[in-house]
Design a protein around this nucleic acid. Structure first.
Length: 924
RNA sequence: GGGCUCGUAGAUCAGGGGUAGAUCGUCACGUUCGCAACGUGAAGGCCGCGGGUUCAAAUCCCGCCGAGUCCA
């Protein structure tokens, strides 16, 4: 990065000098001629702790308001916060910075910003420093990034670097900050495919703001190298600032940690619940916290080794043993982390994240379970929802939190229960495993521990605790979790296949989509713009191309005498490609021809019905289940449609009926379905991000479809009024993931057919039982019960029969030595029956049984009573040899063995063989 | 999106090609004025569903359904 980038008039005019930090070597600007270091930690310590930098203390709400009104007074428009779930992005789950609100379409210049310049305080969530939260005194999972943004274009500049620095400096001056305390450190910035110059605003060791001047984009052929990539200049250049709201509040208070600065009431409450005295007015106590925070500011405490080093340093500087310090700090750190994590959960859940085991939901569960684990450690038994309630009370500026509280409470309760179940299950699994290894006297091996964690969610710490209760040792390496990470085989990145005719298509204009203007017209004329293989490109079309979960239309294209069946329609960069069945070898069409297109109306209408029905069902589900319902995916077919919804528990049969009723009511109300093309930003502001249920469409204008109370950005074809959808019948539900429920339903004709099909099934089943359908449940229950009883009785009878046969069979027994050998064919007896008879026979003394029957081939059973076994008879061996003769195999235990084969003509031979074997065994 | 684990009696689980088990709970009987406890006994199983391999599948293989869990 060129140093010219930082030679600003602002610095020159305000008495700044450029210096190089004597410690880290980076360049910075300061008014203090004697300054040698850049001001940032670790080059400078946290000197604001116990020494506030502003004229007065601010709490969160005051500071936010101060900042936003300051920039409003400087001609910025205040913008409402965006959700912490990045609904408008498909590349990230959570909003990680204020600029994320405007990516990708505003930053790329494709869509105008909601205002220019603007100011916002955007709640952000970053989970990458999870381990440091609570320990470092400054890390948070959730923070508000206060920002002012200016979106410039070549020739239309709002303001750039000088004005940005000036605004920052004025803001700080208005807060009565010592002008000599602030340094502006040069730091090239890159991220998310963009880059630019950047200035960090640092005061007394604390970075308060980052001022990014984004004017570069990643470019293979670029000439500007930054951090191993090459970049080139963009036409649009953006002022991207980030002021840490929480850090401003902290700096204004100078409290030992950021946590004590931003939510002191909740920290104190939790300290009380954990039985810790949080004596912030005791100088000795605050000194410990302050020392800890100052030193923690200098190192990365997410690593165990560093944490121990921190403890050592703090302990020695205040004259305390490391162990004692650790016993003081650990619970305090956990309280801080719990306070932070619950605030994070408040934002996530209120903004509609449903905890789950995949995707964004997993992040919520991760935070939630970490919190519960720490609460358990501290023996805090308060329900999570009560702590979240404290946060909600603490942030009245977000009324939506209170509104969504009932659902949040419900989610938290079910999550707590799930976690307790998992823990309970985990305990049992460890106990089992521990018992197993106790027998062999081994330690539980690492492979076992990784499986416990990977498959059952049992952290090795828990395994150690539970196993030690049983006296089994557990050891695991410090880098256990990173080992787990390495075990995961990285999914191979699939290369995006380039469409083979992409180059050819790029010269064609975008196809006019006339089906939007005249949704009921199915026949049209158009001009052929290009033909290749079996593909036809037209200037305009009424064929809908596959997209938004709606399959393509089919139909015919007629060119002169030739009629071609359209089998697929796809869109590539706005150009619609009609793929047709190739009749012989070549299409008899060429550029410039006029064709007639006919869309298959029945298919189109069926798809449109299912599409409109999807919007209706989505809306009904939201009304029945709650505001957190979000479409997680959808697919339409001719005969049914499916809709995946984010929901934290199973949809009950009763809820399902309500949804179905409500959906059909919307149909019967016959509401007009309206569609309208709107500028993206305007649509977002009017309807919110609920628009993006079905994904985020590209482009600066989006098509807004209103179906009853449902408003979505959607490019699909719809019925013109809800009445045309016809009946809606929900067919089934399925849980496709934890936190996502799938509804399958049919609309219109398909709904009637589906109902008829179900009715036919019922009638057929009822016919078999000769009862009317409404008696089916009672009858099936009765029949099933009877069947069970008969089965049991049958078994009992077989046993009785077996017992009855014993006497007769023993009478026919041959004497071999002093053994009675029964060798018989029992007609019609299956192997189970043979077994029972054999078992009965060997209850008598000195008996060997060789039984056979001719059922599904040949079944053989041999059995030997205790005395026979003692004389060397092994039923298993007998059966094995006998079975070979009948063309099969068999085996078993000395007392009882089963076998069989496929050749019934050899039954007698097999039995004789058995007798011979018994003789042989005895002879030995 | 990728990986792993598990579905057996009302509950918790064992078994892992060859006679379906344990503990708790339930019921009956005994003991008791009654209860708890105890003793004796009994009932309770489409071994998740569907295919395949095999003489034989709860057990092995494939698919489906359901539950859990880790990672991105």
């Amino acid at each position: 990065m060129l140093e010219d980038e930082y030679q600003l008039d602002f610095f020159k005019d305000n008495g700044f000098v450029r210096k190089q930090c004597s410690k880290c070597g980076s360049f910075f600007w300061t008014r203090d001629l004697d300054r040698e270091t850049c001001g940032d930690a670790p080059c400078d310590p946290y000197s604001f702790i116990g020494n506030p930098v502003f004229s007065r203390e601010f709490d969160i709400a005051e500071m936010r308001e101060y900042y936003l009104s300051f920039f409003e007074a400087q001609d910025h428009t205040r913008i409402e916060r965006y959700p912490v779930v990045a609904r408008w992005r498909d590349d990230i789950y959570l909003t990680i910075a204020s600029i994320a609100d405007f990516q990708p379409f505003v930053t790329s210049g494709q869509v105008p910003p909601p205002a220019n310049p603007l100011t916002i305080s955007q709640p952000c969530i970053r989970l990458n420093d999870l381990d440091s939260v609570g320990r470092s005194g400054r890390h948070l999972t959730t923070f508000e990034m206060m920002a002012h943004h200016a979106f410039n274009k070549t020739g239309k500049e709002i303001y750039w670097k000088d004005r940005t620095l000036e605004l920052c400096d004025e803001l700080l001056n208005s807060l009565k900050l010592d002008p000599f305390a602030v340094t502006y450190k040069e730091e090239p910035w890159a991220g998310g495919g963009n880059a630019g110059a950047c200035v960090e605003t640092i005061v007394n060791g604390l970075e308060l703001a980052t001022l990014v001047f984004m004017n570069l984009k990643q470019d293979k052929n670029g000439t500007i190298p930054i951090k191993g990539e090459t970049y080139s200049k963009m036409d649009n250049y953006i002022v991207d600032t980030g002021y840490g709201l929480e850090r401003f509040v902290w700096a204004s208070k100078g409290s030992p940690t950021i946590y004590d600065a931003i939510f002191p009431e909740i920290v104190n409450e939790l300290m009380g619940l954990a039985g810790i005295e949080h004596k912030l007015n005791d100088p000795e106590y605050t000194n410990i916290l302050a020392q800890n925070a100052r030193l923690a500011g200098l190192m990365d405490v997410s690593e165990k080794a560093n944490l121990f080093e921190l403890r050592k340093q703090v302990a020695s500087s205040i004259g305390m043993t490391v162990d004692k310090l650790a016993t003081i700090m650990e619970p305090v750190e956990k309280v801080y982390a719990i306070t932070d994590h619950t605030r994070c959960l408040t934002f996530m859940l209120a903004d509609g994240v449903i905890p789950s085991n995949v995707k964004g939901g997993y992040l919520a569960r991760l935070v939630l379970r970490r919190t519960l684990r720490m609460m358990k450690d501290l023996d805090i038994r308060t329900p999570l929802s009560e702590i979240v309630d404290m946060h909600i009370r603490n942030m009245p500026e977000y009324p939506e939190f209170r509104e969504n509280f009932p659902i949040i409470q419900d989610i938290l309760e079910s999550e707590e229960e799930k976690f307790n179940n998992t823990l309970e299950r985990g305990r049992r699994i460890i106990q089992k495993s521990a018992k197993h290894f106790k027998k062999s006297g081994e330690k539980i091996p690492l492979s076992q521990l990784t499986e416990l964690y990977d498959s059952h969610g049992i952290p090795p710490e828990t395994a150690k605790e539970v196993a030690s209760e049983l006296g089994v040792e557990v050891e695991f390496p410090d880098n256990f979790y990173s080992l787990i990470g390495e075990r995961q085989n990285k999914a191979e990145e699939k290369e995006v296949e380039e469409y083979p005719y992409a180059e050819r298509l790029s010269h064609l204009p975008k196809t006019k989509r006339l089906f939007y203007d005249e949704p009921t017209r199915m026949e049209f004329e158009a001009v052929v713009l290009d033909v290749f293989e079996n593909n036809i490109v037209l200037d305009s079309t009424f064929f809908y191309a596959e997209g938004g979960g709606q399959p393509a239309d089919s139909g015919t294209i007629i060119a002169g005498d030739a009629v071609y069946r359209v089998k697929d329609v796809q869109v590539q960069n706005g150009v619609i490609i009609h793929s047709v069945d190739l009749p012989e070898d070549k299409l008899d069409i060429s550029k410039g021809d006029m064709i007639v297109g006919k869309v298959d109306e029945a298919r189109r209408m069926a798809l449109a019905r299912h599409h409109t029905a999807t919007h209706i069902v989505n809306d009904a589900a939201r009304k029945v289940l709650g505001n957190h319902i979000w479409q997680a995916g959808a697919q339409k077919f001719e005969d049914r449609s499916r809709l995946d919804l984010s929901h934290y528990k199973h949809i009950s049969p009763d809820e399902l009926r309500q949804i179905e009723l409500l959906a059909n009511r919307t149909v019967m109300e016959n509401k007009r379905v309206s569609t309208e093309w709107m500028p993206r930003t305007e649509a977002e502001q009017e309807y919110g991000f609920g628009l993006y249920q079905g994904g985020v469409p590209p482009g600066d204008t989006i098509r807004v479809v209103k179906v009853g109370d449902d408003v979505e950005a959607c490019a699909g074809t719809h019925c013109t009024s809800t009445g045309l959808v016809g009946p809606i019948k929900i067919l089934r539900t399925e849980r496709i993931q934890d936190g996502v429920e799938r509804l399958e339903f049919a609309a219109g004709n398909a709904a009637v057919l589906a109902t008829q099909k179900m009715e036919a099934l019922l009638t057929e089943a009822a016919k078999t039982l000769s009862v009317p359908p409404d008696q089916l449940p009672a009858s099936t229950e009765r029949f099933f019960g009877e069947w069970k009883n008969l089965k049991k009785e049958n078994e009992r009878l077989k046993e009785d029969l077996a017992r009855a046969k014993v006497f007769q069979l023993l009478g026919n027994a041959k004497k071999i030595g002093d053994l009675k050998v029964v060798s018989e064919i029992i007609t019609e007896a299956d192997s189970q029956e043979l077994q029972k008879i054999a078992t009965e026979l060997i209850k008598s003394e000195k008996v060997v049984a060789l039984l056979a029957s001719e059922v599904e081939g040949v079944k053989l059973v041999a059995a030997a009573s205790k005395e026979a076994i003692e004389q060397g008879i092994k039923a298993g061996n007998l059966v094995r040899e006998m079975s070979k003769l009948v063309g099969g195999g068999g085996g078993g235990k000395p007392a009882l063995a089963m076998g069989g084969g496929t050749d019934p003509t050899k039954i007698n031979e097999a039995l004789n063989c058995g007798l011979e074997l018994v003789k042989e065994s005895l002879a030995r």
